[in-house]
């Protein structure tokens, strides 16, 4: 574990905490994409099947459980909480799951390092994570008045990905035989998806204006 990896994981954790806090404190999930949260739930379920088969470290196990539990909590609130669910922008959050899930599944079946159920599902989760933020970005673009915390949530998620790239560079330079091309390419794609958002986020922060994404 290097400092970039730890910082990346902590940023990821913080992003989820910001989202939980926003929804819980304001009793509103306005501007939050349920589709993105459900895609993340699918990502975590497929990736963390090894919770049952392979122990890596206490740290890994606890983080995996936190990511799963927090994502399912957010989904539960958005779908079933009697106050919160009313604030969900159902009509705006129209991205179709199948446009992301099916191509990622096909790609995982074709491009993986081992053709086993566990490994294909793990690879699927890597591909799906790369694009799971898209419904959230589309929803933000349609939201006129983006909540500060929602903006911060997406910014922290993007930062987590950027820190993981630094982690991979560090590991590549320090660990012999450390290579994972599929993960690197997906991670780079995932980070590129955020660049446009970063540009407007930093611009609004510099000018002390409210964040808004041009359509």
């Amino acid at each position: 574990m290097n400092i970039f990896r730890l910082a990346g994981d902590m940023t990821h954790l913080l992003s989820i905490l910001v989202l939980l806090l926003k929804i819980n404190a304001t009793r509103s999930c306005r501007g939050v994409s349920l589709k993105t949260q459900e895609l993340y739930a699918l990502v975590f379920v497929c990736r963390y099947l090894d919770l049952f088969t392979n122990f890596i470290s206490m740290y890994n196990t606890i983080m995996k459980i936190i990511f799963l539990a927090s994502t399912f909590t957010i989904i539960y609130w958005m779908r079933f909480h009697k106050v919160i669910r009313v604030t969900y922008d159902r009509e705006q959050d129209t991205f179709r799951y199948q446009f992301l899930v099916l191509p990622c599944l096909v790609l995982a079946l074709l491009l993986n390092s081992e053709f086993t159920v566990m490994e294909v599902l793990w690879t699927f989760s890597i591909y799906l994570e790369a694009v799971a933020i898209l419904p959230q970005l589309v929803l933000l673009q349609r939201t006129n008045n983006i909540d500060n915390l929602t903006g911060n949530y997406v910014f922290l998620l993007g930062s987590y990905r950027a820190l993981y790239i630094l982690n991979w560079i560090y590991r590549f330079l320090t660990e012999p035989n450390y290579r994972q091309y599929l993960v690197w390419i997906s991670g780079i794609v995932q980070t590129i998806i955020y660049i446009d958002f970063f540009y407007y986020y930093i611009k609004s922060w510099k000018n002390n204006e409210k964040l808004s994404l041009p359509a």
């Binding site: 994981d9 990821h12 090894d50 392979n54 890596i56 995996k64 990511f67 390092s113 290579r179 599929l182």
Partner: peptide
């Protein structure tokens, strides 16, 4: 990917 160690990133 060194599979025998499992995937150690989150």
């Amino acid at each position: 990917i060194p599979k025998e160690d499992g995937h150690d990133e989150l």
